[in-house]
């Protein structure tokens, strides 16, 4: 935790704002710190458990401080393979999940930005019909269409493939709507200026629309990456082989009903490793898109 800076308001100003009292700041900080502790403690405890041996974990109480088996546990999980999921290593799971999450995030962005582009900037027959078709799918969650989708995937032989994991989750009404709303704010004069300047539809998209959408793309990427990373139901259905599992599914499979049957230390390691990539994406991308939001270029 940072140095005791309790008297300095979060904005960084060294003076109190009007109507602020020192007591108020203490109370506010106490509440905030309490909130952080409540949220962070389970994660910390998971980390602690991931550094102890299975025997220590199974013999309560679990110590509050990290143990000495950090390197062994993480090495075993990452490269050795976990028995209950057929000896597949967590590294494989991480690769799988990264491919799936990236595929879903990028695929959704590409498809939705293109469909929003078509709907907003082109006049074609049944334009509004297509818009409403996309819009209506918002009301159909994945679960509702899961059986037909599964059948299609089986027929296409896409079970246990990355394509099968990614493709059905790629269409996104939400992202399409988001891009549509953003595109609608682009002044018509800008479009016309580009036309006069000799930019065809593709050039306009590439040179003007994409650069202006950077912030939106970054924000969506963060959201969609995490959405892809945490997918549960669809990967559960469409993967049978252990080495095609995503980390969330594998984590579930690692846990047995019988406590003694479960390699808890490896489960904890896997949990910790499953958290890291989304956090990384949020932390890295957040800086990027906050900067984008601050200097809006409109």
């Amino acid at each position: 935790m940072a140095e005791p800076k309790a008297l300095v308001p979060a904005s960084g100003h060294d003076k109190l704002m009007i109507g602020q009292s020192i007591a108020g700041i203490y109370v506010a900080h106490a509440i905030l710190i309490l909130g952080i502790v409540i949220v962070a403690f389970p994660i910390y405890y998971t980390f602690v458990a991931s550094t102890h041996s299975l025997q220590t974990i199974l013999r309560p109480p679990l110590p509050l401080l990290p143990g000495d088996r950090f390197v062994e546990n993480y090495y075993e999980a990452l490269f050795g393979g976990v028995g209950r999921i057929g000896g597949v290593s967590v590294a494989t799971l991480l690769v799988n999940t990264t491919i799936v999450a990236l595929g879903i995030a990028i695929g959704k962005i590409v498809i939705s930005i293109l469909s929003a582009y078509a709907i907003v900037f082109f006049r074609f027959p049944f334009r509004m019909v297509f818009f409403w078709l996309i819009f209506i799918t918002l009301m159909l969650p994945v679960e509702v269409r899961i059986l037909p989708t599964y059948k299609v995937m089986v027929d296409l032989g896409l079970i246990d493939t990355y394509t099968g994991l990614i493709l059905p989750l790629i269409a996104s009404a939400t992202a399409t709507l988001l891009f549509r709303q953003f595109f609608l704010t682009i002044p018509g004069e800008l479009v016309e200026a580009a036309r006069v300047d000799g930019a065809g539809p593709w050039r306009f998209f590439k040179d003007i629309l994409l650069p202006l959408s950077r912030t939106n793309i970054a924000a969506l990427f963060v959201i969609l990456f995490i959405y892809g990373w945490t997918q549960y139901l669809w990967p559960l259905l469409v993967t049978n082989r252990n080495d095609m599992n995503t980390i969330v599914i594998a984590l579930k499979k690692m846990i047995s009903f019988a406590d003694a049957d479960t390699e808890w230390h490896l489960v904890m390691v896997t949990s910790m490793l499953a958290i890291v990539p989304p956090i990384l994406v949020v932390v890295l991308m957040q800086r990027w898109f906050v900067r984008g939001l601050v200097d809006t270029e409109k």
Partner: peptide, 20 residues
């Protein structure tokens, strides 16, 4: 003939400069 091929240039009310 499309605007590109007409060989005209236009100045818009809100300038319509490419912001990026």
């Amino acid at each position: 003939v499309g605007p590109t091929e007409r060989d005209i240039a236009m100045v818009f009310q809100n300038y319509a400069l490419y912001p990026h």
